[in-house]
């Protein structure tokens, strides 16, 4: 039902969240329509012109009691049957790091620093004192052996399709919120804390573009579709433009992208050498 409004989902857990939002809205609609119909009927039937003398006793019967119990039961079902398990799946059921792509994201005013461990799979050291906004925004210590092959990008997150992605999220300065609307992912980036989250992207960017061509609402712009990263927590004057991008690749394309990034890394070191 809410597909009408939601950005098209593209992660393994998106359907579960969407279904839950659907069910909550079904409950809300039933209640609102029920109450609303009663309200209109009561106001019309008991207007002074039609009913000049009020009844001291008023409403009888126990329909309202059943309605209240019904609401309580529906809420228990939503809570125990849907919301708690969905939440536990998000924060307790992390996949093994060995089966996943592990990325760190360091938010700052007003960009997303994306940090890959490189071929060795180990994140190097970073230190706030090494931060240089132009050349080294996360303060990576390139003298650290593990840091030598680390890849960093600004606002460009790349992931392979159908493989769990684990993101360790933090912030350099103020609180941001890492929002991937299509992935149904939102997590605050809190300075001083590193908060893990995970999801499985299920549609490559190319697949999504194809899919959107069949949807009238998106057809016109389907060729330019990108997964967007939005900041959801007020973080300063350019909060509104703190936009990042996620590209979901086939495994082969993803490897090719990583290789390409790694080759730039080598190039950078050579330049340092000649300087």
């Amino acid at each position: 039902m809410m597909d009408l409004f939601f950005p098209p989902g593209a992660s393994a857990h998106a359907a579960g969240i969407d279904r839950m939002v659907d069910w909550v809205h079904v409950l809300m609609l039933i209640l609102f329509i029920g109450w609303g119909a009663y309200f209109i009927y009561a106001v019309a039937r008991f207007r002074q012109g039609k009913n000049p003398k009020a009844n001291y006793k008023g409403a009888k019967g126990s329909a309202s009691k059943y309605a209240e119990i019904g609401v309580a039961v529906a809420e228990v079902i939503l809570l125990v049957g849907f919301s708690i398990p969905l939440w536990a799946d998000r924060v307790d059921e992390f996949p093994a790091e060995s089966d996943s792509v592990v990325v760190r994201v360091v938010a700052q005013q007003f960009a997303w620093n994306i940090w890959y461990p490189g071929a060795d799979g180990v994140f190097g050291n970073a230190d706030p004192s090494l931060v240089d906004e132009e050349t080294n925004p996360i303060g990576l210590d390139r003298s650290d052996e593990a840091a030598k092959d680390d890849i960093t990008t600004i606002n460009q997150l790349h992931l392979p399709v159908d493989k769990p992605a684990i993101i360790h999220l933090t912030s350099k300065d103020v609180i941001h919120s890492f929002n991937l609307p299509n992935m149904r992912i939102k997590q605050d980036a809190v300075p001083g804390l590193s908060i893990p989250m995970w999801f499985v992207p299920t549609k490559t960017t190319a697949e999504m573009r194809e899919e959107l061509k069949s949807k009238p609402r998106y057809a016109d712009t389907a060729d330019e579709f990108v997964y967007e990263i939005a900041c959801a927590q007020l973080c300063g004057n350019s909060h509104y433009s703190m936009r990042g991008f996620l590209t979901v690749h086939t495994p082969e394309e993803y490897q090719a992208w990583l290789d390409e990034e790694a080759s730039y890394l080598g190039g950078g070191e050579e330049e340092d050498f000649w300087n």
Binding site: D18, V24, M28, W87, R90, P181, K186
Partner: peptide, 20 residues
């Protein structure tokens, strides 16, 4: 309407999509 729309926000799972 105000109270009902609080429901999906008060439940943690749908709040992932709707928060902020």
């Amino acid at each position: 309407i105000g109270g009902l729309t609080g429901l999906p926000l008060g439940l943690a799972a749908p709040d992932i999509a709707l928060h902020d």
